[in-house]
Simulated assay, not measured.
Amino acid sequence: MPLALYLLALAVFAMGTSEFMLSGLLPDLAAELGVPVGTAGLLTSAFAVGMVAGAPLMAALTRRWPRRSGLFGGVVLFAAAHVVGATATSFPVLCAARVAAAFANAGFLALAVTAAGALVGPERRGRAVGVLLSGTTAATVVGVPAGALLGQLLGWRASFWAVALLCAPAAVGVLVGVPAGRGSADGRPALRAELAVLARPRLLHVLLLGALVNAGTFAAFTFLAPVVTGPAGLGRGWVPVVLVLFGLGTVLGINVAGRLADRHPLRLLAVAGPLLPLGWAALAALADRPTALPVLVPLLGALSFAVGGTLITRALSTAATDAPTMAGAYATAALNLGAAAGPLLAAATLPSPTGPLYAATALTAAALLLGPTLRERPPARTAA
């Protein structure tokens, strides 16, 4: 794999840390800003809504930009939004900063997902996406727990400052390691033609499945801290530990998806897909048993990212030929539509701390019910 791909993953690590870290900061953040925990959880939805809108918009606006310029601009804007967030004194300002950061993240990720496939060719697209998303899994293992611990020691604002500082080496890495690319859309399909690809039923189906799976992941992950300190009866110091366990699971899941998504995607989905709703239901039923968390939390992290990563690869395979600029944006928007809807639905199940886990069960069960038509024919043949 080219070095540029790993430098892109470094930037994804910084952004993934920000996207996921609120799960460990919600109680303290809500208390300081004077809002309920459920309301504070809407910050995750605000971020995801910004990603949904920002991915296609930013991808369309930057079609004629040199690829390196677009990626660098995304990192810089993301850092600036976190400076605003770190100094926010009201919930609306912090919410607006999260939306701005999401737009920057969306533009960056849409370009990065497309660039990852272009760097290696179609035969290794799944592996390249796996390397890119390893930045997200590394964030769940290292960045998110570190952010939660830093928030407990120095306050939640310190975590926002840390993410802003983390963007500096990521920006340098983009400038140094990513080829400038072309600054024109010449030779690519017209924007109208790329937008028309989104109307294809097969692509919409895969994107819907990805949205449902990610909705389940974020419904549960956003509110893991109340489960740890509530039904499980563990102290606040255990929150970073549980987040590390989830992150370790995501590392395993995304690596499995990266290796199998190109060769055996349907087998992976057939095995891991049914286990997702069963796993979330089991965690909800056993939430009052601390010994269940170390087993189920990493397992669910692995399953969620293995299934989600495979669906991303299938969406890219379906759209990449006829929508080379917008394919990454479509996948990014779909996943974040799920990330926006999941916490919203989960918040409605509070104050029961296990309510979000049952919401995750329902969302992933819906994906399972809609999934069998994936077996009609592989998307790679359709693209060919």
Rank of each mutant, 00 (worst) to 15 (best):
A53L: 14
N105I: 06
L276S: 01
L370S: 11
L296N: 11
R377N: 09
R127Y: 11
V197Q: 07
A323W: 05
T62F: 00
H82E: 09
V197F: 01
L8N: 08
G50Y: 07
L165T: 01
L260N: 08
L299H: 02
G24V: 01
V49E: 00
M51W: 01
G183T: 05
V228H: 01
M15K: 04
V131K: 05
L42D: 00
P66S: 10
V176D: 11
G279I: 05
A59M: 06
E32P: 00
F218T: 00
A102H: 13
Y330W: 12
S45T: 13
V144F: 06
A348D: 03
V295K: 06
V241Y: 07
G309S: 10
R202H: 13
L43C: 03
E194A: 06
R64H: 15
S23C: 12
L299A: 13
A282V: 14
A360F: 03
A79M: 05
F103S: 11
A193P: 09
H82L: 08
A118F: 04
G24P: 02
P179M: 08
L212N: 03
W280L: 08
V84L: 15
G230T: 10
A348H: 05
G70N: 06
L283K: 03
G309E: 00
A180R: 15
A193K: 13
R64M: 09
G85W: 01
L43D: 01
R182C: 09
V174K: 11
S184Q: 13
G38M: 00
N336F: 11
L119C: 07
T382L: 14
L303G: 07
G151A: 11
L43M: 05
A14P: 01
A292T: 14
L363T: 03
V113L: 10
W65S: 10
F78C: 04
L344W: 08
L286A: 15
V206L: 15
W161N: 06
D28T: 10
V295P: 05
S134T: 14
A59G: 02
S69G: 15
G143I: 03
T17M: 10
G147F: 04
L335R: 08
A282Q: 13
A86Y: 06
L42F: 02
A215D: 07
V251F: 12
P290Y: 12
H264P: 04
G279M: 12
Y330I: 00
V242R: 02
M1K: 01
P92W: 11
V271G: 07
M51A: 13
Q152I: 12
A323R: 04
A211D: 04
D186T: 14
R200H: 14
P27Y: 15
T364I: 00
H205R: 15
V76C: 10
A333H: 06
H264V: 14
R314C: 12
G216D: 02
A55E: 04
L278E: 06
E194W: 03
L275D: 08
R200I: 06
G258A: 13
G70T: 07
R125L: 13
L119Y: 02
G338K: 05
A148R: 01
T87N: 11
F20D: 02
V12Y: 04
A190V: 13
A14V: 13
A96K: 05
L57T: 13
N105S: 14
L234K: 07
A261Y: 05
